[in-house]
Design a protein around this nucleic acid. Sequence first.
DNA 1: AGAAATTAGTTTACAAGGAAACAGTATTCT
DNA 2: AGAATACTGTTTCCTTGTAAACTAATTTCT
Lengths: 158, 158
Amino acid sequence: MSRMSREDQPVAEVVDLGPLASSLGFLFRMGQIEVFDMFYDTVGRLGLKPGEFSVLWAVHLNPGVRQGAVAETLRIKPAHMTKLIRSFESQGLIARHIPAEDRRGIELRLTDLGEAFVNDNAQAFFSYARQEANRLTPEEAAQLIALLQKFTRLGGTP
Amino acid sequence: MSRMSREDQPVAEVVDLGPLASSLGFLFRMGQIEVFDMFYDTVGRLGLKPGEFSVLWAVHLNPGVRQGAVAETLRIKPAHMTKLIRSFESQGLIARHIPAEDRRGIELRLTDLGEAFVNDNAQAFFSYARQEANRLTPEEAAQLIALLQKFTRLGGTP
DNA sequence: AGAAATTAGTTTACAAGGAAACAGTATTCT
DNA sequence: AGAATACTGTTTCCTTGTAAACTAATTTCT
């Protein structure tokens, strides 16, 4: 019989990580993987990927936004953004519009279909967030979010 | 003149993110990107990638560990782990050894070259971690690390 | 002992994301 | 006006990481 952790994972061997286990970068990575797993167990089954949904969400909240602005805010690289937007366009979720004043930029809007999709899924998308923090007390979760916002400079109106 | 933030980035347009900016998954992603940028500005120039170094580090601290155990701990998928280890082997940094008792597993050890590499770079690798947290007070940084460890279950001897 | 199941790692085939070079549009500067 | 510069998005190629099917070794179950 191999050792089992109480919950799920077989723990074959304990691997000591030393100071790595206190390194911010490593912990962010682990946290993200953890959240991603939870996300998949709950919401992700049917075509709702975090990165993609966040783009739709940003366009939903900022109709007419230029695609570069979304990319910069979500820190998606332009090359990747082009692919995402083109894909959304071909799925009929986003409409691209080149304004006459400045034909370089591209204004983005959700189509009716896109709006419907976001409205249908926003609830589920954001509710997994509560689930995911159940290893922390509500106070700890709030504190963690506040610290992350400060670190990433995404604080509410600083 | 387009609007500039005081520091570096041109802020063409403010994109409202609503509750997304308070979502753990999103914040982890942003945090990781942020750390990665800092890492690159300081250490990453010469062939020191976070993921790869963390594997070498884990083997360094746990000589003879099986490759699957490292993969599980660092949450690297087996397929990817195979590639990483093979690459390290071909670079002469890691030696693989198949023990006679169980010829399925593979024990990993750093070669002398691998040990030298880790010893040469560990200092730099872990010191960027202090740098990266300079948006937070030392207390906040410690608190953030503690919360992340609790969330990811990597807490020190729980 | 021999079949079935489990474990560990590998291979293949692909998706996600990024860097660098590029193309079209607008602005600036003589 | 025309040349040089800056801005915005796209294309091409490459790296990183994953899923699923596979091979080999070991354990379990009759």
